[in-house]
Simulated assay, not measured.
Amino acid sequence: MASWTKFARSFSRKYSVAPKFDGSHGGAEQFDAQLLWKRLSYFVGFPAIGLAMVNCYLSHQAHHDDERPEFVAYEHLRIRTKKYPWGDGNHSLFHNSKMNPLPEGYEE
């Protein structure tokens, strides 16, 4: 039993996640690594997320005025076996009248 507690104590000291600033093994290196990842997050990660957001917005705006595709009444698409439990039962929950056709065609 004593050997187990000795092992657990040495393991917890060796692999502790708290930074040590007393100059012992792992203190300064761990603090430097933490600072590195903090700076990478702020100066690389967040700008990359921002640039991706701008790219998505500009891509959406470039296709905003595209004409909708021609309606073709395929038999295997827009099958309604029972009504939706909201509204008139024919429109999906997130229906977009400009882009989503009904089984009969687009709404005018």
Rank of each mutant, 00 (worst) to 15 (best):
G23Q: 05
S24C: 12
D32K: 15
R39T: 14
L35F: 12
A18M: 02
K38S: 08
L36S: 03
E29R: 07
A33Y: 07
K14P: 00
W37A: 08
L35Q: 14
A18R: 03
L40T: 10
S24E: 15
D32V: 15
L35V: 13
A33Q: 10
Y15V: 00
D22F: 08
V17A: 09
K14I: 04
K38R: 10
F11E: 02
Q34I: 12
D32C: 15
A33E: 09
D32R: 15
V17N: 09
Y15F: 13
K20C: 13
F11Y: 07
V17I: 11
H25A: 13
R13Y: 01
D22C: 08
Q30F: 12
R13K: 04
A33R: 12
F21Y: 13
L36M: 06
F21I: 12
H25N: 10
R39Y: 09
K38F: 07
P19G: 03
S24M: 11
G23T: 01
R39I: 14
G26P: 10
Q30A: 12
R39L: 15
L40G: 01
K14V: 05
A28T: 02
H25G: 07
S24V: 12
S16Y: 03
R13I: 01
K20G: 12
F21H: 09
W37T: 06
K38D: 05
L40I: 15
F31P: 00
A18K: 04
L40F: 10
K38C: 07
A28E: 05
G26D: 07
D22G: 10
D32P: 12
L36P: 02
A18F: 01
R13D: 00
S24Q: 12
H25D: 13
K38M: 08
A18T: 04
D22N: 15
G23M: 04
D32G: 15
G26A: 08
D22W: 09
G23H: 02
F11R: 06
G23N: 05
W37V: 08
K14E: 03
W37M: 13
A33P: 00
S12W: 00
S24P: 10
S12N: 00
K20E: 11
F21R: 10
G26S: 08
K14M: 05
E29T: 10
G27D: 04
A28W: 03
S12G: 01
H25P: 08
F31S: 00
R39H: 13
F31A: 05
A28H: 06
K14N: 04
D22M: 09
D32S: 15
A28S: 06
V17F: 10
A33S: 11
P19T: 02
A28C: 06
K20R: 15
G26I: 08
H25Q: 13
H25C: 11
S12Y: 02
Q30H: 15
D22I: 04
Q34T: 11
A18H: 00
H25V: 12
